[in-house]
Design a protein around this nucleic acid. Sequence first.
DNA 1: GATCATAGTCGTCTGCCTGACGATAAACAG
DNA 2: CTGTTTATCGTCAGGCAGACGACTATGATC
Lengths: 255, 255
Amino acid sequence: MPYDPSAFPPFAVTVDLVVLTVRRHALCALVVRRGEPPYQGRWALPGGFVRIDEDLGAAAARELTEETGLHVQGPDDRHTGAHLEQLATYGDPGRDPRMRVVSVAHLVLAPDLPAPTAGGDADSVRWAPVDTLLPPGPPSGDGPDRSGGQSAPLAFDHSRILADGVERARSKIEYSSLATAFCPPEFTVGELRRVYEAVWGVALDPRNFHRKVTGTPGFLVPTGGTTTRQGGRPAQLFRAGGATVLNPPMLRPEV
Amino acid sequence: MPYDPSAFPPFAVTVDLVVLTVRRHALCALVVRRGEPPYQGRWALPGGFVRIDEDLGAAAARELTEETGLHVQGPDDRHTGAHLEQLATYGDPGRDPRMRVVSVAHLVLAPDLPAPTAGGDADSVRWAPVDTLLPPGPPSGDGPDRSGGQSAPLAFDHSRILADGVERARSKIEYSSLATAFCPPEFTVGELRRVYEAVWGVALDPRNFHRKVTGTPGFLVPTGGTTTRQGGRPAQLFRAGGATVLNPPMLRPEV
DNA sequence: GATCATAGTCGTCTGCCTGACGATAAACAG
DNA sequence: CTGTTTATCGTCAGGCAGACGACTATGATC
């Protein structure tokens, strides 16, 4: 069939953001309250339309800055900001009742932030622990409802997008050094371990964890300083090293 | 800002397909020759517009069937067709000179097929070894040009999409049982090993490989039959087992 | 100030898995 | 019958992870 430039169906294209951080030993996601229908008053992932001359990654970075004030770090710009990567694209017809919207979801891993009030209304954006936003997960609940929170499901298909983002983060810190994206520029081995524990929802042996991360070349670089942030013996401070892939990977305890 | 349904910029949304198979010990991708500008006469990945009421995955499956006659297997429908998954989305402004096109690329892993002539013109679609379509890869070439083939780069940004798809396939067969998607319904351990060798471009020790795959519970199920397809001693036939993840993973020899 | 609780760091031991590789088995080609 | 090819089974050493003991260095409490 011959090409007809006017024959393509028009779509709206948006970016949605799964912004994750670790706060008080819990994996948290950034959610915004919808001020207008559909799903008015419900929580949703931040996001917005892609501009007509804008790259997808640029749109995601722009939305991130608009909603959180966070900036994204380039590949070589180490730890002045958050990690951003494309997650997946969601385009079910009917996922948005207003029109045909294809959403390119992005995943952001950010260090703990003071408060997500930048740029928007204060109480319409917040960090929510992911286990209050999502059902328990693959192991179907048999016992009584254990969901910790007040949560109605997120708007649109955002619960599924969030679940996919969380799963991506959980698997990615296994075989990459991305867990450091959740940490401040300088951090201790214990802080990094608490990141793994929060993201995976498990307890790790501090001694084996210490051996593993300090024994992996390029993962951690000692800065020379020490600190006491949790009580107890002072700990060495590290920066993220140049290694991006962990080989052999950090093993998640058996499911 | 209030919602204005007419305010979103219109995009064209397409699906592009990275269809991989293993033919004659080489990893091959399906490419089609473009019959019209832009990039007229150049090879490109198969793909097409998403219909206005069509899911992204359905569009990819439809294009696959139209171009190859292949059918996609559902999650429980074991090995009557190919494996399909979403790869990534490419939306640079200017990636298509005609208009703003966002392409949701999908990855298909298929067993070796008789001929890709289904549905289309015979010599405008073919299997091409990926090493004739792509530059050698991360190790930048210092020696003379060693690219095996006649290849001009693929049209649009399809070389990058193909490279991403190949990389996804290479890493995914490490920790999943997806390599069986390249095999016919019944296959031998040696045939499965040749799939790994073709996808990774390395030689594997037959004895260690045999120990690994037969020792991983749920990876392979013996059918009872034996066959001689390569000369030499007859080999046991297997089907793909129910396991989808390989733990511990199949290790790719050091890079 | 002594004692306790909390964290961090270093070691040891055992078991599993992998890579290297020898040996045997079962077909086919001359 | 002999050599070649492929499949399959075994052996052995090294590396790494899990379990866990021991010691260190801080703050909190009595």
